[in-house]
């Protein structure tokens, strides 16, 4: 992928993967951002509306902060980044050095099931870029 510009086909395929793997299992909202806080794409289930631009800025900051803390204690990275709430949970996963996948989901999905699907989603997205 020519980072910085994503083609229409790439985005459509990514959106398909996100819908198929995450939205369909009940994830409320999934966003791909870069580490600078830009939104690559955002998908939701049609009922949840978040201010995705502010969210992306904060999420990138949050991820960068945790990453910097990991390095301070001698870890390469903290592989699980997860915020648990009463009605909403947020899960962060690194796609590669530049991109993050963020899933927001409610009580109906277990963290284990979500993680499994996130891993598969990321594999498929990576394959897509390797091809292009």
């Amino acid at each position: 992928m020519n980072y910085g510009v994503v083609s229409q086909e790439q985005l459509e395929k990514i959106d398909e993967i996100l819908t198929e793997k995450l939205i369909k299992i009940g994830v409320d909202c999934v966003i791909i951002i870069d580490m600078a806080g830009n939104i690559i794409t955002a998908k939701d289930n049609g009922t949840s509306k978040y201010d995705v631009y502010s969210f992306a800025a904060l999420a990138a900051g949050n991820f960068a902060t945790v990453d910097a803390m990991a390095k301070l204690v001698g870890e390469e990275e903290f592989s699980l980044l997860f915020h648990k709430g009463t009605d909403c949970n947020i899960h962060f996963s690194k796609i590669d050095d530049e991109l993050l996948l963020i899933s927001m989901f409610g009580k109906d999905i277990s963290l284990g099931f979500l993680r499994l699907n996130v891993v598969e989603t990321i594999e498929q997205i990576k394959k897509l870029w390797a091809r292009d």
Binding site: G4, V5, V6, L11, E12, D34, A36, T41
Partner: peptide, 15 residues
Amino acid sequence: MSFINLREKIVQIKI
């Protein structure tokens, strides 16, 4: 780095 979404024709610029 600015991010350009060619499908929705959105350019995100960080200042």
